[in-house]
């Protein structure tokens, strides 16, 4: 089985080329299914999906990441924290939330290690996703980076830090052993 994204893309391209040849020779894009031999029409159209997601109202969060800071929003009336940060307070029916820097101290509630990855994540080594309860009372879900994955368990003390996600290079937040 192909491991890297490049290998997968290469496999897909090879296969598409085969379908293209077949279509030219036989006049139809119909291939036998691998296991059953059932005839399958290979979609001639292809749709590429890349969403454009507005972040205007929570831009401060991303500006913060670039400065190495992690922000939550908080309702100034009821003291409710929102993380992930949101711009509206449904409890007050208001949008007067304040930005507060997260202290970054927490404790693991639970975690997993993703072995079978989504197609768009196959280029990363197996990653640990953890949920931690922060000292302010809200939870954070993100990757946990550690040199000692065998020592990770619920109750473990962690800190929240900003790092770049490689190989893409965008700023993200990670849990690390405290």
């Amino acid at each position: 089985m192909a491991q890297t994204r490049e290998q997968i893309e290469q496999m897909v391209n090879q296969w598409l080329k085969y379908v293209e040849e077949l279509m030219k020779n036989e006049g139809l894009p119909i291939v036998p299914e691998e296991k059953t031999g059932d005839p399958l029409w290979v979609d001639v159209r292809e749709m590429r999906l890349k969403y454009l997601i507005p972040v205007k109202r929570i831009k401060k969060f991303f500006d913060g990441l670039c400065e190495g800071k992690i922000y939550a929003t908080r309702c100034p009336v009821k003291g409710i924290y929102y993380f992930p940060p949101q711009a509206d307070c449904p409890a007050c029916m208001d949008e007067n939330l304040e930005w507060v820097e997260v202290k970054g101290e927490g404790e693991i509630l639970t975690f997993t290690k993703i072995n079978v990855k989504p197609l768009s994540f196959v280029h990363y080594p197996d990653y640990i996703v953890a949920i931690a309860r922060m000292s302010e009372g809200f939870n954070v879900l993100c990757w946990l980076s550690t040199d000692k994955p065998d020592e990770v368990k619920p109750g473990m003390k962690v800190k929240l830090v900003v790092k770049r996600r490689e190989p893409e290079g965008f700023f993200s937040y990670y849990l690390e052993p405290a």
Partner: peptide, 11 residues
């Protein structure tokens, strides 16, 4: 964070 359906339940 690339969660998968098994990943959610694994937690």
């Amino acid at each position: 964070f690339g969660l998968t359906f098994p990943g959610y339940y694994a937690m």
